[in-house]
Amino acid sequence: MRRRVKGKLSDDDRDVWNEVKKTATPMMRAEFVVSRDLSAKSPKKTPPKSLDAMITQFEVGARSARTPMGHNLAPSVSQRLAHAPVEMDRKKFGKMKKGKLKPEARLDLHGMTLAHAHPALQGFILSSAAAGRRLVLVITGKGKDRDDGGPIPIRRGVLKNQVPHWLHQAPLRSVVMQVNEAHLTHGGSGAYYVYLRRNR
């Protein structure tokens, strides 16, 4: 007995198959029947890409090749303040931005830790509001570049970034109307104008 080759019919089997085909009744109309060559090989499926091939190779702490340093961060405090709605009188706001309004008091937080700066800021703002002052200056400094090259970028100037958050939190948000970066004559991006609400 000859061994059958997989996928191929012998001459005898082909003859039997042809005789069977003559007796078969198609289930659909003939024009819709699609004949298929049983000996034809089905097309090979493209294997899916491995997970390793889809993940870009990187090293922990390496900077992204797609975006320059700094673009992976959220908008800076300066950008957020520049786009904040103006709640104070617009004419006064324009003068304040140009450095034409003189601050009535100032607080210098230069060199303080967060633990010391926070209570100092709260005391200064609340006492200024109680004294009826409207415009005060808070100096934070621009800060040192503390980015140590780790995987999470760190903004320059811890106090510079933290002070506006504190000013918008209780209990200070009830007395603070507007916060804006100071004009160059009063310290520029290393200081903030804080415009206080009128005492009632």
Rank of each mutant, 00 (worst) to 15 (best):
Tyr193Leu: 05
His118Ile: 05
His165Tyr: 10
Asp52Tyr: 07
Arg63Ala: 11
His183Phe: 07
Lys22Gln: 12
Pro48His: 05
Lys144Val: 04
Met69Lys: 04
Met27Arg: 15
Arg63Asp: 15
Lys49Tyr: 04
His118Lys: 15
Phe32Asp: 05
Thr67His: 15
Gly99Pro: 04
Lys160Val: 01
Leu121Phe: 07
Arg29Val: 02
Leu121Asn: 04
Ala182Pro: 03
Ala131Lys: 15
Pro47His: 03
Val194Arg: 02
Lys92Met: 11
Val33Thr: 14
Ala53Arg: 14
Gly150His: 09
Arg173Ala: 11
Thr185Gln: 13
Val194Phe: 04
Leu107Ile: 10
Arg146Lys: 11
Lys44Ile: 11
Gly94Phe: 11
Val77Trp: 09
Leu167Tyr: 06
Gln178Asn: 05
Arg156Pro: 01
Arg197Cys: 01
Glu19Ser: 12
Pro68Met: 08
Val60His: 03
Ala74Leu: 12
Asp11Glu: 14
Pro119Lys: 12
Arg106Leu: 07
His110Ile: 08
Phe58Glu: 11
Phe32His: 12
Gly143Cys: 03
Pro43His: 10
Gln169Val: 03
Glu181Ser: 06
Pro164His: 06
Trp17Thr: 02
Tyr195Leu: 13
Arg155Lys: 10
Ser76Gly: 02
Gln57Leu: 10
Gly94Gln: 09
Lys142Cys: 05
Lys41Ser: 10
Lys144Met: 12
Lys144Asn: 11
His168Phe: 10
Arg156Ile: 13
Asn161Thr: 09
Pro43Gly: 07
Pro103Lys: 14
Val33Glu: 11
Arg80Pro: 00
Thr23Asp: 02
Ser10Val: 13
Lys6Gln: 12
Ser10Gly: 04
Arg146Ala: 08
Phe58Trp: 12
Met69Thr: 15
His71Tyr: 14
